[in-house]
Simulated scan of single mutants.
Amino acid sequence: MSSRDVARRTALGVLGTGAVAGAALTAYAVVEARAYTLRRVTVPMLPPGAPSLRVLHLSDVHLTPGQRRKREWLRGLAELRPDLVVDTGDNLAHRDAVPAVLDGLGELLDVPGVFVFGSNDYFEPSLRNPVRYLLPDDGRRNTDTAQLPWRELRDSLSGAGWTDLTNRRASVEVRGLRIACAGVDDPHLGYDRLDLVSGAADPEAHLRLGVTHAPYLRVLDRFAADGYDAVLAGHTHGGQVCLPGVGALTTNCDLEPARAKGLHRHPATSRPGDPGSSWLHVSAGLGTSPYARIRVACRPEATLLTLIESTTPTTV
């Protein structure tokens, strides 16, 4: 056999191995995107003597009418019997998805809840090059597609008793505790109006929560400076594609990848009790773009946050 034949066979073997590895990775990523996971986190932020609170954090469901398995899993979260539901947006991924979202929320709509919207509640998703998410933000936003029925979703959630925190402050009572809440419209689209919600959080409230879809630093800084005990956000998909030993590659905002998901402090170097600081919980979310239903080393999730008196937090 000539050296040319050997080289050709070697090259074909390498290509074949690469193709098999690529197919295996794609298959794994497809399975990972459907491996819905419940995270449990304990956060010490309540005053002495307060009863613990179970807060269910939902984000980035990106639901389409045909995603029955996701809808059934979401509906089953009512069995957790949360005291409060916080929905940080991007519920929709299809113009006909509002009934599916309401069906998926099911009995959770009977629980006190608060919500804000993200860009994918407002605008229909489109097919885009996923590599763009790994590049620096160029400021372009997907606002040239058809609008989704966000008004219908807003009215349905509000009609069920959930509180709309779109550039608003509000008070919610849960288990005898008064929770002062402030929320902003999607910062990724520049819809946030911090001027409408800025100011010291209610010092008489038992708990103070800031709510946003995208965890942009300007929003986190404002809520922390105003005295909110915690800020809840989504948007990042936890990076969606993560690498072992590296973690998330991007957050699709100006939050650093090290805090792309999970429980952290803000500012990142602060400690509990530091003035002008807060807890930060970023949900990796339950969904993906309907055009790229893959996740790598970052399972879709909802999180049950158990809020307790100040101690050391634990995560499962």
Rank of each mutant, 00 (worst) to 15 (best):
Y133M: 00
G66E: 14
L286Q: 14
T10M: 11
S171T: 15
G276T: 08
D5K: 15
A268S: 12
K261E: 11
R95I: 03
A214I: 00
T26K: 08
D254R: 09
D195A: 12
I294S: 05
D185Y: 10
R259F: 10
P44S: 10
D96G: 05
G247P: 15
A224E: 12
P290H: 09
A225E: 07
P267F: 08
I294N: 02
G22W: 12
P267V: 04
L134E: 03
R40C: 00
A7V: 13
T88A: 08
G234T: 06
H237T: 07
R68M: 04
Y28K: 09
L105G: 07
Y28W: 13
V116W: 10
D195L: 06
R178P: 00
R132H: 07
Y228Q: 03
A50S: 05
L194P: 02
A11Q: 12
S59R: 04
G285H: 10
D155E: 15
G161N: 11
R271N: 08
C181D: 02
L157A: 11
P51Q: 02
S310L: 11
H281P: 00
P275K: 10
D83W: 13
K70Y: 05
D137P: 06
G239L: 03
P257F: 10
H237I: 07
T250A: 13
A302L: 12
P203I: 03
G176L: 02
T42N: 04
V316P: 13
S277G: 08
D5H: 15
